[in-house]
Design a binder for these strands. Sequence first.
DNA 1: CCTCTCGTGTGTATGCTGTACACATCTGGT
DNA 2: ACCAGATGTGTACAGCATACACACGAGAGG
Lengths: 272, 272
Amino acid sequence: MANPDRSTELLWGAGSRRGLSLERIVRAAIELADAEGLAAVSMRKVAERLGFTTMSLYRHVPGKAELIDLMRDEVMGERPQAETGQRQGWRAEAEAWARAQLALYKRHPWLIESSGSRRVPGPNAVAGFERALEVVARTGLPPAEVVAVVTLVGGFVESAARQVVETAHVERRTGVSEQEWWGARDSLFEHLDRYPTLSRIYREGGYDAPLDPFEFGLQRVLDGIEALIRDGSRDETRCVVCGKTVDAAATGRPRDYCSRACQQRAYRMRKS
Amino acid sequence: MANPDRSTELLWGAGSRRGLSLERIVRAAIELADAEGLAAVSMRKVAERLGFTTMSLYRHVPGKAELIDLMRDEVMGERPQAETGQRQGWRAEAEAWARAQLALYKRHPWLIESSGSRRVPGPNAVAGFERALEVVARTGLPPAEVVAVVTLVGGFVESAARQVVETAHVERRTGVSEQEWWGARDSLFEHLDRYPTLSRIYREGGYDAPLDPFEFGLQRVLDGIEALIRDGSRDETRCVVCGKTVDAAATGRPRDYCSRACQQRAYRMRKS
DNA sequence: CCTCTCGTGTGTATGCTGTACACATCTGGT
DNA sequence: ACCAGATGTGTACAGCATACACACGAGAGG
């Protein structure tokens, strides 16, 4: 587990603190991870690649966990592309954001492997988050739902990337791995009668031309969000702060907020 | 589907407890992972817990990777619950499936940590997949889309579980609540003005009462799938095998399949 | 000039990890 | 009785992150 304070300091530190050596270490580690996977990244290997001893790295980086934090944020700074001229409607822009994120995962598959444990978000990661919030905020959804939507799409992209990258990884492995795949297929065939629905769907060709999980899933998720936007704007029964359903007052002026807490938050917000 | 030999051995416990067995190893490893996390599972620790030497394990398990495969499939065999009387409509059942899956991840958080690298699916994992296919197949979607939908929902649940479980895990291990943790990262907030949308949403209270990412996301995803079902049944412009859009014939009888390949697959399927 | 501190690189040592290999013991079949 | 195979053990090794003591060179203060 990375020391949060140290990682935060390194990730957010002023330019002067980020010495030349630190950048070289991080870049060497990224090259190693890109070429041989996250498992191949050891302090020894990184040091060797730079022509220094293992322990010299510790003069610039507190530990391996922090190094990985830095690697992650570094590649997240790769600009998706020329940042097209916006104003395309939230859906097209959300699609573009998701596709750029997927491309990032494809360029650096180890991002997925290293996303397991608790990570401190760096400036570039937050910048990506900011861009996504920007897009979704234009939908006019209440703030809490904007955050939830971005979380959902972000999580989906990572999940899809995990599948896409993994199958690509398996396909790239030749011979032995392919045989394993066939072996698993055979033993699965033997017991296929235990799974009637699966075998029926297999027989009906459900696996002959599999749909791209990213493209398919992205459209479903965005459809679901679109439905949320439509429902939310049709009836006004949702809290404008958190988006929860607000039980309509039987008589008198209809409520805007689901609770006094949300009302107070909106008031403070308006006042500042 | 209990193996009689194994059952007798387990039931006759006292006698067989003297020796090692694959089941005992797997169960000990699961207990260890449940209690202290996946990182704490080492061959030495598992062996110690059982009162044997490290190397004795290798008489029953080829290596650690295979042990983890076995652990995964073992816990996936835990029946979600009493398998309620079905016939509730696909959406309610899909929700139940997703919730059961989330509960599984909560019971065994290490399932998420260990899902990174390539894993061989075991009988219990396939059984869970089969149950999901069963539910989604009732929607009448074409086979390839049934698979894609199950993949989508499965991926979503894992993604949401990763978030939910992780915050809980961090809180338990560090003894610091999520709020305190982020509060301590004040250097992060210092730079908040670089992110206008993020800070605006924060000020508007978007983070004060965050929506449950699982519950929120699940509804969006299911909404998206519902839209797919509706659109698919309204117009017949989709291939009944793979679900891709089929370009309508200008004149004559409208096509059912997107390609000769799909037409042939459906024919073979009908014939068998 | 000398000395003293400090940033930086190095070498060694420790305690983990998975697992290869040789050896011991016990068991069941011929 | 004997032998083969299954099972458990002990030692050994390579790899990992990293703690710690040391070496060297630069700049500051006397």
